[in-house]
């Protein structure tokens, strides 16, 4: 089963607003477009931060309660030694972790989220914002980056993704 045009269709639901969780849908969505697959992305709850003009360039990564964040990520040869939560709560630690990840991404020539979204839109991906969350947060369509087609209900999303492969992030 596929989209009305008979093409394979993948739909991503982005529910997280942290920098690390912004990328899965962007990377897979871009790969899908590169393979001739139709792509729809539905942004809900904290995921709306990915498409908010005021937030998209300021997504962050917090080191607290994240067991995957090791000292070694900071270039310290410390094997499995984690960043202690007690250190993670210090002012500025989230900014440090965020800067670190952004630098790593840049080294790999991975574009920032705003640019990545634009690439996806230019490649034909369809972006939608979740109505319930938009209402809850008191947002309007103007608050979102160009390329967000509409604010739609969960029911609309279900309708427009009939037959699609759905990935929840």
């Amino acid at each position: 089963m596929s989209a009305p045009n008979g093409n394979r269709h993948m739909a991503f639901i982005c529910s997280k607003g942290t920098l690390d969780m912004a990328y899965p849908a962007l990377v897979m969505g871009w790969a899908a477009l590169g393979n001739g697959v139709d792509v729809t992305i539905f942004f809900t709850f904290w995921g709306l931060d990915l498409i908010r003009k005021s937030r998209v360039d300021h997504l962050e990564l917090a080191p607290v309660a994240n067991p995957s964040m090791k000292m070694s990520l900071m270039g310290i040869p410390s094997d499995n030694l984690g960043i202690p939560n007690l250190i993670g709560v210090l002012p500025g630690m989230t900014a440090v972790a965020t800067k670190l990840m952004k630098e790593k991404m840049k080294q790999l020539e991975v574009p920032p989220v705003r640019e990545y979204l634009q690439m996806l839109v230019d490649g034909g991906a369809k972006l939608y914002a979740c109505k319930m969350t938009v209402d809850m947060m008191g947002l309007k369509k103007e608050d979102f980056v160009d390329g967000v087609i509409d604010i739609v209900t969960a029911s609309d999303f279900i309708d427009m993704t009939e037959g699609a492969q759905i990935i929840f992030i």
Partner: peptide, 8 residues
């Protein structure tokens, strides 16, 4: 994408 549709 316009020149080479579906996976340029």
């Amino acid at each position: 994408f316009a020149l080479f549709p579906k996976g340029p």
